[in-house]
Amino acid sequence: MANTAKTRSGFGAWLLDPKRRGALLVAPAITILFVMNIFPLMWSFGLSFFNYKASSLKVPTFKGFDNYGKVLTDERVWERFQTTAIIVSSSVIMQLIIGFLMAMMFAKVFPLRRIVLMLVLTPMMLSFVSVGVFFKLFYEPTFGIVSFVLNFFTEERFVLLGSPEGAILGIVIADAWMWSPFVMLLVLAGLVSVPKYLYEAAEIDRASKWRTFWTITFPYIKSLLLLAVLFRTIETFKLFDVVYIITDGGPGSTTETIAVYLYRTAFQFFKTSQSSALAYIVLFIVIVLTNLYLYAVNRREEEVE
């Protein structure tokens, strides 16, 4: 590229100057991101200060921080945040446990490993819509396979989604089932990166399995586990489709996550501005989490180097 610059003149030469090489290479990516992400973000930031309603033709008026005040003092919003926190934390813990155990299982090389691994990776490739619909069917009291199996043990009619706790459990199981493989991939990558000679040394020293795990394996997967927690927390925070289909926020509004509430405010009640304000509060939380995430990534890099 530098050579062609020498032979050109005028604008071409200016553009291909080695000084501008970095900026030139970054430009297409930044342009697409600006048009499709950053510009809409600024637009909705602007909207959050007006009383715009997508359903009405009235000219919106400037409201300052009214929307933020309204959202932050709304008790329902805090309830939704609590529900989200409960679902996110239980789902992420479950994903960690299952993902970790599965990673330990697949850390060894065994015949047909590639194929068996595909069995546990498949849930990740399903769409949220289909997972929602079919898990709802599995939980169904009359036709559901879960109730059928449980009927061997108890006479009681099994209505999982009838109680708030059950409904939350139902969502958490579906989400954790779908995304534990992701945690597994992360942990597995950590396990694979442990140099083999360390294990050989441990075997010569006759170190117990327990000790080998804590002194050799764990340091290599520690920050990857942290990465998994943060990445999954951020993603689960956005959980929408599965909740919307399995419980629709019910019974009552006990399983309505912040994402579902946001969707309702924006597209069912058409409080466009108010939902933008709430969205910005969510974005703030996500930025804080992203910072933690980056911190974890950097620590991982330092450790490996």
Partner: peptide, 27 residues
């Protein structure tokens, strides 16, 4: 070829990925 403020660019880029889609869906 790091730009001035390379890490800031990278951070902003990552933030757009972490953002809940519902934030930008209306605009």
């Amino acid at each position: 070829f790091p730009l001035r403020g390379n890490d800031t660019y990278l951070f902003i880029i990552l933030t757009t990925r972490m953002m809940p889609p519902i934030v930008v869906i209306i605009p």
